[in-house]
């Protein structure tokens, strides 16, 4: 029911949508685009995560990202093809101020990444959140928190509890993962690209349910959204961490 209201509110607030409804000839449906910016300290594995999601495999080696790299992947949710664009940003502080602003424009979601083996990268999160605030990203823009490199559990400096508290305080779901070895235990029981994929898919699901009006796109049926919600819950349950609180 909540979701229905959201959708209605979106319809009312979107000039683009209402005008397309009234026009006699609808433009051919375009592929919707979800723009997601990935931020966090240097070396936490932003490039790895985004590469993993878009290429479906762990990169042999990654280098420092200078400025902003772009990756994309077409996904399908309930039969709709959606383009997920990931903006992978440089971690070094000097790049944030004058270089990366351009890429905060019109982002639909933010992924904060820290390295579970590096407490400093976790402590930097408030400044990254502040960074988003300065770029005038509203509260309605979904954010998620990813603790990366959990394959190196023995070297962890950031406990799941502490991270979860932080995530709760900032109304973000938390995911702990490894772009390299997503299951930590390496039990080989599942295809190992699932987890990173699931993180971004969750964001995409959230965006699809929350923002049916990105670009000039005919509405997705409410039935879809209900299905999505169920999928959301399933995913959440299987990870046992985090939930959407927007």
């Amino acid at each position: 029911m909540k979701l229905e209201e959201d959708s209605m509110a979106d319809i009312e607030s979107s000039f683009e949508f209402s005008s397309s409804l009234t026009s006699s000839s609808l433009p051919p449906p375009r592929t919707r685009i979800f723009k997601i910016i990935v931020i966090g300290d240097s070396g936490v594995g932003k490039t790895c995560l985004t590469y993993r999601f878009c290429a479906g495999k762990f990169p042999d080696r990654t280098e420092a990202t200078i400025g902003v790299d772009f990756r994309e992947k077409i996904i399908e949710i309930d039969g709709e093809k959606i383009k997920v664009q990931l903006w992978d940003t440089a971690g070094q502080e000097r790049f944030r101020k004058s270089m990366v602003q351009h890429y905060y424009r019109n982002v639909h979601a933010v992924v904060f990444v820290y390295d579970v083996t590096n407490a400093v990268s976790f402590r930097s999160l408030p400044s990254w959140i502040e960074e988003c605030r300065q770029h005038a990203l509203g509260q309605e823009v979904p954010r998620i928190l990813v603790g990366n490199k959990c394959d190196l559990r023995h070297a962890a400096q950031v406990s799941t509890d502490v991270a979860q508290q932080f995530a709760d305080a900032h109304s973000m779901p938390l995911f702990e993962t490894s772009a390299k070895n997503p299951y930590g235990n390496d039990d080989g029981s599942r295809n190992d690209s699932d987890h990173v994929e699931a993180i971004f898919m969750t964001v995409a699901h959230k965006l699809k349910s929350q923002k049916p009006l990105i670009l000039s796109q005919p509405p997705c049926g409410l039935g879809d959204t209900v299905t999505l919600r169920r999928q959301d819950e399933e995913e959440r349950g299987s990870w046992g961490c985090g939930c959407w609180r927007s």
Binding site: S42, G43, R61, T62, E63, A64, Q92
Partner: peptide
């Protein structure tokens, strides 16, 4: 720390 991080990743 930053230099080390970048140099270690500069294999290419």
């Amino acid at each position: 720390n930053q230099v080390l991080l970048d140099v270690q990743r500069s294999l290419r």
